[in-house]
């Protein structure tokens, strides 16, 4: 299993993976979690933020394809937090800038989720995310997520800073937070998840060769 980072430059090499990822988003966020605000077209979930500048971090399992993913949005363009949930940053200004990205749409396919303990796929995704953030010298990441995940992010050593008090949205309690990627946090994530090596495919154009972490 390995992680690929798909951006505007290498997107054409990962059309199949991206398409599978949009289909999984429909299955999980709309079918399973019933996020009613989202729209599904042709079996795929995508919104106005799935533009050319979005970056996708996907976990790929050999022979199976995409088993987890997340989306990064540049904050100099409109994002989920700035357009839909600005009220979540009710105690601090949301960080914005050329080196600030917003993390959204994190998922792991059902059969790779952990029972109680963390799923190996989420561990690989988190490590791949941090490797990418450090490689691209992204200084700050902001995120809005389910509030009950906060203790996990704290325990992972990510040092999340809350941007506001949790808000209610439908059945969900959501919290906006930001964090600064660090090598220390990556080391902590690797330790927690028992990952010893890099999981991010280094060759951006030929990442499919990788089968870096066996789970």
């Amino acid at each position: 299993m390995h992680v690929v980072a798909i951006d505007a430059d290498n997107r054409s090499k990962f059309n199949a993976e991206l398409d599978q990822h949009f289909r999984l988003r429909a299955d999980i966020f709309v079918g399973e979690l019933q996020w009613t605000d989202l729209t599904v077209k042709d079996g795929r979930e995508y919104d106005q933020f799935d533009h050319r500048d979005a970056v996708y971090i996907l976990a790929i399992n050999a022979g199976e394809g995409v088993v987890g993913g997340l989306r990064l949005l540049p904050t100099q363009r409109p994002t989920l937090m700035s357009e839909i949930f600005p009220q979540a940053a009710n105690m601090a200004d949301m960080p914005t800038g050329p080196n600030v990205y917003e993390w959204t749409r994190f998922f792991v396919v059902p059969h790779w989720r952990g029972e109680g303990r963390q799923s190996p796929v989420s561990g690989i995704l988190f490590c791949g995310l941090f490797e990418y953030l450090l490689r691209e010298q992204i200084e700050t990441v902001r995120c809005i997520g389910e509030t009950w995940w906060m203790p996990r992010f704290i325990g992972f050593g990510m040092s999340p800073r809350p941007l506001g008090i949790p808000i209610r949205h439908d059945r969900w309690s959501l919290t906006a937070f930001s964090f600064e990627p660090s090598h220390q946090a990556l080391a902590s994530l690797r330790k927690v998840h028992g990952i010893e090596h890099s999981v991010l495919a280094t060759d951006r154009g030929d990442a499919r060769k990788g089968d870096i972490v066996h789970v």
Binding site: E115, Q118, P151, I154
Partner: peptide
């Protein structure tokens, strides 16, 4: 609390006002 390893914990506070606002609770 469900921690980063999936274990359960709790922070329990004794007392508190009758009229604790929802945003204070959060």
């Amino acid at each position: 609390i469900i921690d980063h390893c999936g274990f359960h914990s709790v922070v329990s506070l004794v007392g508190g006002p009758d009229d604790l606002q929802d945003f204070e609770k959060r």
